[in-house]
Amino acid sequence: MTIVMSSDVDSEEELLELYASGKLKPGLNIPVEEDKVFINNVKAMKEAIASFQSSLPWSERLDIVAEVAPMAPELSMEITEQQQFLKAGKIDEVALNDFKRETMFHRQAQTAVMRGVELLRKHNIATHRPEDYFAEMFKSDEHMQKVRHAPLQRKTSLEQTEKVRRIRKEKKLAKEKQVAAIQAKHKQKRDFNENIKKFRKGLRNDLDFLETDSGKKNKKKDDGGGGGEKKKNLSRAQHKRKGKDTKYGFGGKKRGMKENTTESTFGGSGKSNFKGKNKGRINKNKRMSSKK
């Protein structure tokens, strides 16, 4: 039940009285606000207009009532769409869309210009300023200079960043290639030496490796290419993860990884824990022995 409250604060007694008389019933009671009546005194407004309206000729007023101008046929579809929106009361559709709104104003101004120019000619008022007529402008030259330079600056800055990015990428690629080449060279040498050693010791009887070396190399290169394709199949997130892993390492404690241990100092398995820069370099003993 809803009842219009006479005052904001009703005492308990009053409420009890109302309840006794039957005006108030059990349940939820909500105060109902009366709708505000908005003033719209049309007659007085018209009088006001008449009282202060100027009786000057059009050449003093220069006002024009203009509707939205028609545009190129390919855009006319859009216009009808806009007007439909307006008619259907979907004002937000136009008012909140910057582009639609601004084009509407633009076209209204265009009609005003086309009509206005005719009228101005009729009243013998100049619209075109001669080339040699100089006067202070609404916006200063400094500001206009800024406006002119703004898009240029944006373009150059974009180009600059693009260039820097490209160079950085190229550098990275070149470095990778260099490291790969060095490692491949070392590996080839190592294998070659090992094979020679084996041959010397009599573990090997053929000298095939001297000829097929280049063939093996080619095969390996092909394999590398296949690996590259696999890399490409990774999703974007995986790719990113992989990149970060290579850059920062993956898992475990990083501290003390490069420190010497008993294992590293006394040979042990011969495998080193750390990823050194000089990955291709082998243990000195081995190198010396292979030279003999």
Partner: peptide, 24 residues
């Protein structure tokens, strides 16, 4: 950009004719 103090054309929407408050 325009001349400082040049006389502007004043362009009004159709609704400035339709409603008395807007015509005022």
């Amino acid at each position: 950009n325009c001349l400082k103090g040049s006389r502007p054309l004043l362009s009004f929407d159709n609704s400035f004719d339709e409603h008395p408050q807007y015509s005022l």
